[in-house]
Amino acid sequence: MNNFVTPPERQTAMQLNDGRKLAWSEWGPVDGVPVLFCTGAGMSGWLGFGASYLSELGLKLIAIDRPGLGLSTPHPQKTLSSWADDIQEFIQAHHLDNVLAVGFSQGAPFAFTLAGCGLVKAIAIVSGQDELSHPSLKPLLHPDVARIVTAIQQDPVEFERQFAQIATADGLWQLIISMSAECDGLIYQSDIFAQAYQQALQEGFAQGANGYARDLVNALSHWPIKLEDINVPVDLWYGALDTSTVHSPDFGATLALRLPNVSHIVDPQQGGSILWTRARDILAKLKSDVSLT
């Protein structure tokens, strides 16, 4: 469709041991090194990135619909830890080796959890949400974000219930656009990209807003994994022009200090859309982080 957006080459699903369905979209060679793509907020796996580079890099991008989003069955008690359990089952069922992962925006804590549970060899966090409930970040938060974090800490169940009643795919799209820098808006609002992004959001909300609301609470609560204990390589990619208030408030500076094995890239000419504008660099760096045998 253009250099940024390519429809999924394959879409399929499996039944988990507890009877739930886990669905995903794929791009790239079927025998490529698997890269699990943890998508942004409220999105199905329909919107990938870097499809035109996957064959040359020998990578297969796998974007899994998180439970309750897209075609994946909701998990009644979904947590970051239950996500790791689902992905462990997925990896084992498909006999995957040398698994890598990318976490974009709200997908960051989901990718970090896979790394913390030893399920992947390396991860790239791109325009990633930080652990915004961490005390060191409190002075850096936008007031609106700080209020949400506090509300979740005080009563996560009630916050989730109320939020699920008001959240919509269109509302989330408008929020994303309103928080985007000019350079990101030019990409996000281009005809083809906007259509693709909104399709991923519409699919993400196809079962209602509960899946997204649960993801939001999990992402803004204390994370169950300790970043300081993650020993696999972690690439942090941020654009210095990114104006989103829900990504890392210091472009990953605090994150980098907490991670033992980290590469920290802040591109002064990019914004939050760096996932698409520097897709090849992100994928090539991720593959180079580990010795694939």
Rank of each mutant, 00 (worst) to 15 (best):
Pro8Ala: 05
Asp18Gly: 09
Arg20Lys: 11
Leu22His: 09
Ser25Met: 00
Glu26Ala: 10
Val30His: 13
Val33Thr: 15
Gly40Glu: 13
Gly45Arg: 06
Leu47Phe: 11
Gly48Arg: 00
Gly50Ser: 01
Ala51Ser: 13
Tyr53Leu: 01
Tyr53Val: 01
Ser55Gln: 15
Leu59Phe: 07
Pro74Phe: 07
Gln77Ile: 04
Thr79Lys: 08
Trp83Cys: 01
Asp86Met: 13
His94Thr: 01
Asn98Val: 00
Leu100Tyr: 02
Gly103Val: 01
Phe104Thr: 12
Ala108Glu: 08
Phe110Lys: 00
Gly116Phe: 11
Leu119Phe: 08
Ala122Asp: 10
Ala124Glu: 04
Gly128Arg: 11
Gln129Leu: 15
Asp130Ile: 08
Glu131Thr: 05
Ser133Asn: 13
Pro135Val: 07
Ser136Thr: 11
Leu140Cys: 02
Ala146Val: 07
Arg147Val: 03
Ile148Cys: 05
Ala151Lys: 14
Pro156Lys: 08
Val157Thr: 15
Gln165Leu: 04
Trp173Gly: 03
Met179Ala: 11
Ser180Val: 04
Ser180Asn: 10
Ala181His: 01
Leu186Arg: 15
Ile187Leu: 15
Tyr188Phe: 11
Gln189Cys: 07
Ser190Ala: 14
Asp191Cys: 06
Asp191Leu: 10
Gln198Pro: 04
Gln199Leu: 12
Gln199Tyr: 03
Gln199Met: 07
Glu203Lys: 02
Phe205Gln: 06
Ala206His: 05
Gln207Pro: 00
Gly208Asn: 10
Gly211Leu: 06
Ala213Tyr: 07
Leu216Met: 12
Leu220Arg: 04
Leu220Asp: 03
Leu220Ser: 01
Pro224Gln: 06
Leu227Tyr: 02
Asp229Pro: 00
Val234Cys: 09
Asp235Arg: 14
Asp235Pro: 03
Leu236Thr: 13
Leu236Met: 13
Asp242Phe: 07
Ala256Val: 12
Leu257Ser: 14
Pro260Thr: 08
Pro260Asn: 05
Ser263Tyr: 01
Pro268Gln: 13
Gln270Trp: 02
Ser273Phe: 11
Thr277Tyr: 10
Asp281Ala: 13
Ile282Tyr: 02
Lys285Trp: 00
